[in-house]
Design a protein around this nucleic acid. Structure first.
Length: 119
RNA sequence: CAAGUAAGACAGGUGAUCGCGGCCGCGGAGCGUUUCCGCGGGUGAGGAAAGUCCGGGCUUCACAGGGCAGGAUGCCAGAUAACGUCUGGUGGAGGCGACUCCCAGGACAGUGCAACAGAGAGAUACCGCCGGGGACGGGCGUUGUCCGUCUCCCGGUAAGGGUGGAAAGGCAGUGUAAGAGACUACCGUCCGUCUGGCAACAGGCGGAGCCAUGUAAACCCCAUCCGAAGCAAGACCAAACAGAGGGCCACAGGCUUGCCCGGCCUGCUCUCAGGUAGGUCGCUUGACGCGGCUGGCGACAGCCGUGCUAGAUAGAUGAUCACCCAACGACAUAACCCGGCUUAUCGUUUUGCUUGUAUG
């Protein structure tokens, strides 16, 4: 991804969980914390409650694809952790995309001029 | 054509745009190794990748010794690196048949268990049947004999009833007071012997009237095999680090195959505080795939030709559109690698064979 890296280490996840702000909807939970690096770092977490290995990989790909296609409209300098809830197992791409954008609006992550363009 | 049976094959495809992990090439940043960026090419999960139930390769540790445990397998022969797998047989069970299924050693080494029912379960007389005695009644009749009855006594019996998974070989006859392998034929069992077979075993002949249930997925016995842990194995490179205080004095801890004996090493323990876990290799060419020939009933083996087909390290296959199609495709994501087993699975399709019907 052009402007982003991924979160990898367990302690990075724990830091965002403890210090970040969170919003949730039916399929996803999103934690956000500013990192001061000028780029975004994204971590996707799918637990075994969601499904077996195939289902978990599919959910991960849908979330990553949704983020990738809208990467340009995000603010920069954030650590974002997206946790999939069990209901996400049977969801298609379009629903996943709308769920992600909904959480972004709640966090006010979208760059201001894009926000005005939509309204 | 219908029903069945056995063995396979495939696991959506094509095109376009965006996106991801390795690899190769080119260009740029960079003194250079490393690294980063861009462009192009090519490549990128399964039949079960799953469960982790067996077996092996590989790696490290242990390879003074003795003893005791523990685990697995279980008809025979073969295949294999090995196996609990596979192949071919034997025996048993099911099916008209093609064919399928079977945790298939030993119960005179020992121990345990066998509920309930039933009279009785390494044993039995409850009902029944039969004989003798006694009592009572009756007929004939004169101190006997015949018949009948019994809340009586003694004995015989395993035919019949009933219980049970199982009642001491089965069935038919002879026999008998009634019965019984007591005796006889056939079948079964056991023993001996001959023939065939490497063997499991099969068949023939002869003999023995048949002395004793089941369970070994109860302990156990016998035979064979098994050192342990696992790629977070392990090897190398680089970097960081911090110890302090108290208690105890041979108690203890670690290693040595699970335990014991024995052996080797180390001071040990508690409290408080602090710090790092980055990279390279292992890592994919292998008991490999495909085709052909030869040997073998077969599993498989040998030879020749040919091919290279993921190697990530928080972990790469996705999204959108169009068309094909009956179908949003079912089950499901490699993590060191192989050989098997087991389980899950929407469907499509090929071939052999069996039975029935029709036609010739």
């Amino acid at each position: 991804m052009r402007f982003s890296e991924s979160l990898k280490k367990n302690h990075q996840f724990q830091f965002v969980y403890k210090n970040g702000k969170s919003y949730a909807n039916r399929y996803l939970v999103m934690y956000v914390k500013e990192n001061g690096l000028g780029i975004n770092r994204v971590g996707i977490s799918v637990s075994k409650k969601v499904g077996n290995s195939v289902v978990r990989h599919r959910v991960t790909r849908l979330v990553r694809e949704s983020y990738r296609l809208h990467e340009g409209i995000f603010n920069s300098g954030l650590d974002i952790v997206i946790v999939a809830r069990p209901g996400a197992a049977s969801v298609g791409y379009e629903e996943m995309e709308s769920a992600l954008l909904h959480l972004c609006k709640l966090h006010h992550l979208i760059k201001v001029y894009f926000y005005f363009d939509e309204t």
